[in-house]
Design a protein around this nucleic acid. Structure first.
Length: 435
DNA sequence: TCTGGGGTCCTAGGACCC
DNA sequence: TCTGGGGTCCTAGGACCC
């Protein structure tokens, strides 16, 4: 029996090669050519977005720029344009909201729309069914995005967010695909297990090793140890086909208005940086740490949150990565956070080891002003910090910089393994603002 | 010139308390 | 004092997503 709750009314609209498409708006000569958006050539980094022409040459997102250039030396390489893509995503969302009362942003290039209850609103005499009405509206909406902002996108429609998401991928490029209620199993069966959200490279390898390539093979495993091993996954896939609810809508993101049961704030805030060249000099690492701490503290203050747990992330030259965290009194002030993380840095930096990546993360967040009886460290947020924040609020983070963060550290304390000779210029291009 | 950066979620062991 | 268990917090790591 088909109830309205089980109808195909959830839509996922996904912008096709989004970053590449935006770059083509800025430079129309790139249309029809292989385009790769990512780190600046010559810098450490990976491909963020590759046009279909570049994909035909073997380039895909996540690949190192070095590999991409080897495969496609004649492609057009464009550095990532921070901030710009978000503005285009907002324009897209505004269009979608004309067509659907419930639009959620799932990521910078992906939106989830809930059309439940809208069939009557849009129905036309020529529509052969409520499903046909919704599919027609989604096609019109997709075309509006194309015509008004010149951005291609694809849309999938299904009974749940997961089906809609997979369908949008099958609809690319520039298509619309509806998966009618009841046909989920037939739709999923022939697909590679990797197409299912949540199955990544590791799970895929495990499944393949067990002889499972397709979702059909997964869903029809005969009783036995293999079935036992993957029963959690089977339940997940099966649930998508049979569950009588449509509960997996995207949470609105950012989710900082959401509180957990204990009044905390859901989520974390982090920044990390891969250096252009590995850094072994402790003073320089401390200066970089300070720069990261200042930035994340600033972001926390902007969101009005305090953090209790502070995590330091280190990645060494050989790509070995470790994280060390410490929980202290809630704060968002540079000084106590720096004290905490500097301690972790000194404890975990073996002499002679060069650092490739340094990262800082804040978690166990609470709203500022809510820490009733908890000790709350206000140290370091004096008039100077307030003034610095005020400038940054008006002109952006990069408008002002504490002396120590850019050069020599005020927190310095020479150590035995100090005095390395590596180049330590931070990878400025990663955060360069282009207009 | 191998391997980004922002996140979320899950697991698992140990400490500690009752 | 021969060995129990919950529950919760903290920490570390890893899979996954875009």
């Amino acid at each position: 029996m088909l109830t309205n709750r089980r109808s195909s009314r959830i839509c996922c609209l996904d912008l096709d090669t989004f970053f590449v498409s935006v770059e083509r708006l800025f430079d129309p000569s790139l249309v029809g050519k292989p385009v790769v958006v990512g780190a600046s050539p010559g810098k450490r980094g990976v491909v963020t977005s590759a046009s279909y022409e570049a994909r035909r040459l073997g380039v895909h997102s996540g690949m190192s720029m070095a590999d991409a250039q080897r495969l496609a030396p004649n492609a057009f390489y464009v550095p990532t344009r921070h901030g710009t893509y978000g503005r285009y995503a907002s324009k897209v969302k505004a269009i979608l909201e004309r067509y659907c009362p419930e639009v959620r942003t799932a990521s910078v290039d992906e939106f989830i729309l809930d059309f439940r209850g809208c069939e009557g609103l849009y129905r036309r005499p020529e529509d052969t069914s409520p499903d046909a009405t919704i599919e027609r509206v989604v096609r019109e909406m997709r075309q509006a995005v194309q015509d008004e902002i010149l951005l291609p996108s694809s849309a999938g429609i299904g009974t749940s967010r997961t089906i809609a998401k997979i369908a949008s991928g099958r609809a690319k490029p520039a298509g619309v695909l509806m998966v009618p209620s009841g046909s989920e199993r037939d739709f999923l069966a022939p697909l590679s297990v990797r197409k299912f959200p949540g199955i990544g490279p590791v799970a895929e390898a495990n499944l393949n090793q067990a002889g499972i390539q397709t979702l059909d093979q997964l869903m029809t495993l005969p009783p036995g140890p293999t079935r036992q091993r993957f029963k959690g996954l089977m339940r997940q896939v099966d649930g998508i086909c049979t569950e009588q609810r449509v509960a997996d809508l995207a949470p609105e993101r950012p989710a900082f208005s959401e509180h957990d049961r204990k009044g905390g704030v859901v989520g974390s805030i982090s920044n990390e940086r891969t250096f252009h060249a590995d850094v072994g000099n402790l003073n320089k690492l401390e200066a970089q740490l300070l720069a990261l701490v200042e930035r994340v503290c600033w972001r926390a203050r902007n969101r009005g949150v305090l953090a209790r747990t502070f995590t330091l992330k280190l990645r060494f030259s050989n790509f070995e990565t470790l994280s060390r965290s410490k929980t202290i009194a809630p704060t968002n002030s540079d000084l106590p956070v720096m004290r905490c993380l500097r301690g972790l840095l000194l404890q975990n930096l073996a002499p002679g080891r060069a650092v490739r990546l340094l990262g800082v993360a804040f978690s166990k967040l609470t709203l500022e002003g809510q820490q009733l009886s908890l000790p709350y460290d206000r140290g370091g947020r004096g008039d100077v910090s307030m003034a610095v924040d005020a400038v940054r609020d008006r002109f952006g983070y990069e408008a002002i910089r504490r002396g120590a963060a850019g050069g020599r550290s005020r927190w310095e304390k020479r150590s035995p393994h100090d005095g390395g000779s590596e180049a330590t210029e931070p990878d400025q291009a990663a955060n360069a603002r282009k207009v």
